[in-house]
Simulated assay, not measured.
Amino acid sequence: MKRNTLTALGIGAGLLVALLGYSMTYSVRFSDVAIVTTFGKASRVQVDPGLHVKLPYPVQSVKMLDRRLQMVESRLETQATRDGLQVVVQAFAMWRVANDAEGEGIRNFHDNFGSMEDARSQMEGRLRNAMAAVSEFNFSDLIGRNTRLAEAEKRIHERLMAEKQGGRGLRELGIDVQQVGLSQIILPVETTKSVVERMQQERELRAQIERDKGDSAAAAITSDANAKSAKILAYANRLAFELRAKGDALAGDSVRTMSEDPEFAVFLIWLDALTEITSGHTTIFLPTTIAPLHLLNQPRGAGVPLPEDDVLRNLPARPRSATLQPEDREERDVASDRTGTGGQESANRGG
């Protein structure tokens, strides 16, 4: 009987010691931070993981807080942009329990929120209020090629941190906001129609601007080409006039020179024709009685020879220094034409 009593007392004492040991120790995980409260007031912050000791309940108790990064997301909210369009947006915020070397941020979080669930609920309301910053931007600033979405998210972040509760912001309340962003931007049907119409108008305006630029560039190119063309034509006309004047002057000199001795001039023409005929490698058979082949039958020093039927024999004699008058030049041209015709006929007969 006595032994049974001692056994029961030993077992009870062991259970009491175990229960007391359990109530006086607590374990902290790597992802958590522990707040030790004494009679409900935070007295110590424990951030080191492992097994720790405290006074038994109800003197001291321990509350665990998750110090990992948390995410809160707002509901879809309709916001009006600065240019009057309605958009449905949804925002998110990445936050964690503020932690510093002294643990003051963790104490503030415990005193103001008490638990992670309460903090998350209040963050949703604050984030919904901060989304009003969307109204400071045009619709084209939120989407499109030249978007200012990053600037809009930064503005929401600033409004979220600037909101006060009891004269204190989120940082003073124990929450450290890491990132704020817009996860969705949805257009209602009415807004979609307005956006499409506005985009079409902008496209037409840009297209018209580009067409105007093209027309302006084309007009400039055409004007420059016309100016250069007129300048080139003017230069070409002036050069042609100068060449024509030089040619007329040279022709006048040649005419005056040949007018002094028409027979010698005809002889030179015959020589040029003979040179052209004999310059090639073609063999032809023609009688030597026609000009200018009759020159081949004349001995050296015999003077200016004439073919057998030459029109110059019928011309009236004139002084060698005389100058041909216009009517004489016409007669000379006719004679030359006849001579050429006769030579061709002779060539045909010879062939």
Rank of each mutant, 00 (worst) to 15 (best):
S61H: 13
F92G: 03
T341A: 13
T289I: 06
G40N: 03
L293C: 06
G343L: 00
S135L: 06
H294M: 06
D118G: 06
V97L: 09
Q79K: 15
A245G: 02
F137G: 04
S346T: 01
F241A: 14
E124D: 00
A273Q: 01
V266W: 08
N112I: 07
G252R: 10
K154Q: 06
H294W: 04
G303D: 07
A347G: 14
S229F: 08
K2E: 02
R75C: 01
I290R: 05
I221W: 10
M94E: 07
S194W: 05
H110G: 08
G303L: 10
W270C: 05
A13Q: 03
P56H: 05
V97C: 07
S254M: 14
L271V: 12
V195D: 02
R155E: 11
Q201S: 07
G40H: 13
A322M: 15
R318S: 13
I221P: 01
A220H: 15
L233T: 10
L142K: 10
R75F: 02
T323R: 14
S23I: 04
T278L: 11
G50N: 06
V62C: 08
I11S: 08
N108K: 10
G303V: 14
N138V: 01
S223H: 08
I232Q: 05
L55Y: 09
G105T: 10
M258V: 03
E158A: 14
G252I: 03
N297P: 00
V62S: 04
E197F: 03
A13E: 04
S135V: 07
V177D: 15
R332S: 06
R329D: 01
M64D: 00
G114E: 01
P287D: 13
Y57P: 04
D32N: 05
R238S: 00
T288D: 05
L312T: 10
V36H: 05
V304S: 07
K231N: 07
D111I: 12
T78I: 12
A42G: 00
S61E: 13
A251C: 02
L16N: 03
Q90T: 12
P299Q: 12
V180L: 13
P188T: 11
D111M: 08
R338K: 00
E260D: 06
K63A: 11
V17Y: 07
D272Q: 11
Q208E: 14
S183Q: 12
A42W: 01
A130D: 06
G343E: 02
Y235N: 05
E327R: 12
D48S: 09
L76E: 05
P307Y: 00
G114M: 08
T323Y: 09
A234Q: 15
Q344K: 15
E104W: 00
R145M: 01
P326A: 15
G174Q: 05
Q60Y: 11
T283Q: 02
F92W: 05
S27C: 09
G214I: 00
S229G: 06
T78Q: 11
N108R: 14
D48R: 13
L271W: 10
